[in-house]
């Protein structure tokens, strides 16, 4: 039976604390679908988060994600332009806010792809030599939502608006989603924009160059996960906490590693209406440098 992702506002006690920590460590103004879906594996999720956190708070992880973002920008640049904005009448503030919303996902999606790839790898290769986060070369990045980041605001799914409801279902069908991603729910705050964007995206997602770009991104993320980033400290015993849900969890995680590359490309293609691929190759919220912290985790 399909498990519904846990909404941020419905998270209680320990889960609420973990969601708060996700926002701080991932430097993001909301909790994405990946985590909300993983959170449905109640016993395993806290263990998983304890394993993810030491990786996610390092410069090494941020750099890996930046690398994937830059690669995605390069790949998106070769795809046909959407040119959505000329076809939708948007006010100045709406334009500004859509760009601000796109920036959130342009920032977080590469991080999600890398971490999901790391989790997928770790589940298939339980480790005996867990990640040691506080090596001198593992600088920690600052915690907290970057200044000026737009809140991760989104509409409910299913939406009340019939056109949006149809668009959501079409996105799900076309992209093979089990749940509509936060990205589309955020963009649905401007319904005409999302509908027009999807109208233009839909034919592109079948384009051979688009499909090839997805493969390149997925492989690059797998490479980051297996070679550059040390493994998560997940043991067989911990993975056993999933019980009979083990395969289901692996399937869910694998699903995310498949849907994140197209999501990244879609956000990039929309962003290219406003920014150049060179601009988009750079992190919209670069993590400031700070002195490496050596010692036990606080």
């Amino acid at each position: 039976m399909k498990k519904s992702p846990i909404l941020e506002e419905e998270a209680e006690r320990e889960l609420s604390d973990i969601f708060h920590e996700i926002r701080q460590v991932f430097r993001i103004s909301g909790v994405n679908l990946n985590f909300r879906k993983w959170a449905t594996y109640h016993k395993f999720f806290p263990v998983l988060w304890d394993a993810i956190r030491p990786i996610a708070e390092t410069r090494l992880f941020e750099d890996s994600s930046d690398h994937i973002r830059a690669l995605a920008a390069q790949l998106a640049d070769r795809l046909p332009r959407l040119k959505i904005t000329p076809s939708v009448f948007l006010g100045e503030s709406q334009n500004f806010q859509i760009q601000a919303a796109l920036q959130i996902y342009h920032y977080i999606n590469p991080k999600l792809l890398v971490i999901t790839s790391v989790v997928e790898y770790a589940c298939h290769h339980p480790t005996l030599s867990p990640f040691q986060p506080h090596q001198p070369d593992h600088e920690l990045i600052p915690r907290g939502v970057p200044r000026g980041m737009y809140p991760m605001e989104m509409i409910d799914d299913p939406p009340e608006d019939l056109t949006l409801r149809k668009t959501f279902r079409d996105i799900e069908r076309t992209l093979g989603l089990t749940d509509i991603n936060s990205d589309y729910r955020t963009l649905a705050l401007w319904p005409e924009y999302l509908v027009a964007a999807w109208h233009r995206l839909k034919p592109i997602v079948k384009h051979p160059q688009y499909l090839e770009a997805i493969m390149v991104l997925r492989e690059a993320a797998q490479h980051q996960a297996s070679d550059l980033l040390p493994r998560l400290a997940l043991s067989d015993h911990q993975i056993d906490l999933l019980g009979r849900s083990r395969n289901d969890f692996l399937e869910t995680t694998s699903h995310f590693t498949h849907l994140l590359p197209p999501l990244m490309l879609n956000i990039l293609l929309m962003s290219l209406d406003w920014r150049s691929s060179q601009e988009l190759a750079v992190s919209p919220f670069p993590a400031e440098f700070q002195s490496p912290v050596i010692g036990p985790s606080s």
């Binding site: 009448f89 948007l90 006010g91 100045e92 503030s93 709406q94 500004f96 806010q97």
Partner: peptide, 9 residues
């Protein structure tokens, strides 16, 4: 919605 479209920033 019409009003929102008029908004500057």
């Amino acid at each position: 919605r019409d009003y929102q479209r008029l908004q500057l920033v």
